[in-house]
Every structure is written in C-alpha cells, then in structure tokens.
C-alpha cells in the first residue's frame, strides 16, 4: 500500500522552509554557500593571474611597454584605511542580521544602512586610489602588471558594488513589505564573503612584498 505522508514533499512556494529539505538547510542558504564555493575559484584564478604578472614588467628586460610595476605605487596607509572600513561593514552586517533575527526592525534598518554606507565608502576609496594610479601613469592598458591588478581589484569592486545595491534594495524593501530574516542572513553571507576575499587580496596583493 503506497506509503502516504501529508508532509509536503516540497514547499515550493516557500522552498526555504528548511524542515522540508533533506539536509535541514534552507535552499537559498545552501545555494549561496555553493555559489560562494564557486566564487573562490573565480578569485583564485584572478589572484593567480596577478601573482604571475605582478613584477614581470620590471623583472624581464626587452619588453615593449612601460616597465612600471603596480606594487611600486601602493599607498599602504590609505588602503589599510579602506580595509578597516570594509571590516567594520562586516561587523555592522552581522549586527543587522542578529537584529533581523530578533525581529527588531528599527536596528536592522539602521545597521543595513550603515553597512551600505561603509560599502559605498570602501568603493569610493578604491575609485580614488585607482584615479591616483591612473594619474601616475599606471592605466589599465599600461602593462601586464597594471591590467592584472585592475582586473582583480575591479572584480572585487564589482562584487562590493552589487553587495551595496542588494543592501540598499533590502533596506528599501523592508519599508514596503516584510522581508525574510533568512534573506538578510543570506545577504550577510555574501557580504562577509566579499570581505574575506578582500582580506586575502589585501594581504597577497598589497602587503606581501
């Protein structure tokens, strides 16, 4: 006799109803983690490209194009300021997730807004830093070292920009209608991942000589 269970096999309308899933984790959360795992490969590739090319113009003579290496232009104090900002935004993100969990709407919106602001500040710092590099003659097409650097930090910047967009959209939506506490947490995962990638980039690109 066919075994029948009223237990909904899949709650498709709200698939993130975890007790309906086989692993006990909601779909969006698991999906975000799988995406983050694949993003590791993306940033791994970009970091390896940078490490292969970073001091090639200086090291090898007889190359066409300028022999400027991007690492000569780094302004560590300024970049460490932007790194602090991103780290702080990670904290405010966590606070907004916990307040979302508590259902405390007010603080969630406050922290979401601060995180978005800090993210935007970080982006501003990056754009300023890039403009300084370009003014010092290290444009995207100058040589291999600069284009590898701009691609890597550009991709990270794009992820930060999308993160800020999502934060602002989450903020806007929280005024209009209820948002899932889960949604804020998954957005938090993305934001922390972007911060982790910056931890690696900051160390490998800027500090390791």
């Amino acid at each position: 006799m066919a075994e029948v269970s009223l237990e909904p096999a899949q709650d498709l309308e709200f698939p993130d109803d975890p007790h309906a899933t086989a692993t006990g984790i909601s779909n969006p959360k698991l999906a975000m983690w799988v995406y983050l795992a694949s993003d590791c490969l993306l940033f791994g590739g970009l970091i390896s490209t940078y490490m292969v090319y970073r001091n090639r113009p200086g090291e090898i003579e007889g190359l066409a194009g300028s022999s400027l290496q991007i690492s000569e232009l780094f302004d560590i104090p300024f970049t460490s300021m932007t790194t602090f900002i991103l780290l702080m935004s990670s904290l405010t993100m966590v606070l907004s997730v916990t307040s979302a969990m508590r259902g405390d709407h007010q603080r969630m919106r406050l922290w979401l807004g601060t995180t978005a602001l800090l993210g935007a500040l970080f982006l501003g710092g990056q754009i300023y830093e890039f403009s300084v590099f370009v003014s010092e003659g290290a444009g995207f097409t100058t040589n291999v070292s600069t284009s590898a650097f701009f691609t890597l930090t550009g991709f990270h910047g794009a992820h930060v920009f999308v993160g800020v967009l999502m934060l602002l959209s989450m903020l806007g939506l929280s005024f209009k209608r209820e948002i899932e506490a889960e949604g804020v947490e998954v957005l938090g995962l993305f934001w922390h991942f972007v911060d982790i990638v910056w931890v690696v980039i900051f160390t490998v690109v800027y500090l390791v000589v």
Binding site: V52, R56, P57, L63, A64, N143, V144, S147, A148, T151
Partner: peptide, 18 residues
C-alpha cells in the same frame, strides 16, 4: 575579452603576457 576589446595585454608575449 579585455585583451581583444579593451586593449589589455594579458597574452601579448612581447609585452610580457604569457
């Protein structure tokens, strides 16, 4: 794509590309 459309030199051996 950056090499072809935006003038980067990632794979141009004479400019250090590999």
């Amino acid at each position: 794509m950056f090499d072809r459309l935006f003038g980067a030199t990632f794979f141009d051996a004479s400019k250090g590309g590999d």
